[in-house]
């Protein structure tokens, strides 16, 4: 009983936080206190104060304003990457599960090879080879990201296509394409939505991680991971440089994880709990 109430509270909290984050991202230009790019070398490492809520960084830029603008970056990349992963993964999974056995074997073989490689390191390697830039970062994160969607959707299609309603759709003369998109896909969407929201946190973390390692966007662009990277050098003298972007990352990742948990319970009940545990 207490467990159920806790679950409900955390799901509501996740939704509130999500609305808050989306609001911040949308209204970012009006929420900033200072120009996030403006350097003020006379006022470096300023402690949090009334004018600079989260203090200033090593170049005297307003950390609060940069975090606000950074919300856009993180959410934008997260949403784009998760959408791409979902789209590619779902399509590959549908084709693999529903298509001829040969196609399934080839696709699954390929996926098994990809999964045999250490994921984050491979992503790092791809990001390292491609270099800086928004588009390149998105490519690096999509490179492996679609695989888990493909596996889940394929598995679901394999079990769904044995179900009787698919058989009866066939005797009613409905074509394969129609059955695939009208009958199988809608029944796969629940777990896919849950997975997307759970992946979102991981992607945002990965974006921060890549930027932290200097594989992210351009230096001056406000991005939480890059800010953390700059802050780490001054952890002893001016910890607020790292603490605030760190908190921003934590809150965002937590939001999406809680959201994923809540959606899982809500959408799928026991079946999905088994799938994702």
């Amino acid at each position: 009983m207490g467990d159920a109430i806790m679950k409900r509270i955390s799901f509501i909290l996740a939704i509130v936080l999500l609305i808050f984050l989306l609001g911040v991202a949308l209204l970012a230009p009006w929420l900033t206190l200072h120009d996030p790019y403006e350097q003020n070398l006379d006022n470096r490492f300023a402690k949090p104060s009334r004018t600079y809520w989260f203090g200033t960084d090593d170049l005297g830029r307003c950390i609060y304003s940069r975090i606000i603008l950074g919300t856009r970056t993180s959410l934008f990349i997260g949403i784009v990457v998760v959408s791409l992963n979902t789209l590619i993964g779902t399509l590959v999974g549908l084709v693999s599960g529903f298509g001829p056995k040969v196609v399934d074997s080839i696709v699954m073989g390929f996926i098994d090879v990809l999964l045999a490689l250490p994921g984050p390191i491979l992503t790092l390697a791809v990001a390292g080879i491609l270099g800086h830039g928004l588009l390149k970062m998105i490519i690096a994160l999509t490179f492996l990201g679609w695989v888990s969607y493909a596996r889940i959707v394929r598995g679901m299609v394999l079990s769904l296509k044995e179900r009787e309603f698919v058989e009866s759709a066939r005797t009613l003369g409905l074509g394969s394409f129609h059955i695939l998109f009208k009958h199988l896909l809608p029944n796969c969407l629940g777990p896919v939505i849950v997975l997307s929201s759970m992946e979102m946190g991981g992607i945002i973390m990965m974006v921060a991680g890549l930027s932290f390692l200097g594989l992210g966007l351009q230096d001056s662009y406000p991005e939480w991971g890059a800010m953390l990277d700059q802050g780490k050098d001054y952890l002893r003298t001016a910890p607020h440089l790292a603490i605030f972007p760190g908190l921003a990352i934590m809150v965002t990742v937590l939001t999406f994880n809680l959201l994923g948990d809540g959606l899982r319970d809500l959408l799928q009940g026991e079946e999905a709990t088994r799938l994702f545990k």
């Binding site: 179900r163 309603f165 009866s168 759709a169 005797t171 809608p186 029944n187």
Partner: peptide, 20 residues
Amino acid sequence: ARLAIQGISQNPYGVFNPRH
């Protein structure tokens, strides 16, 4: 000719797509 033969099965619960 394709639609001339139709079937009903023993499990009426499974015949309809649960989402439709």
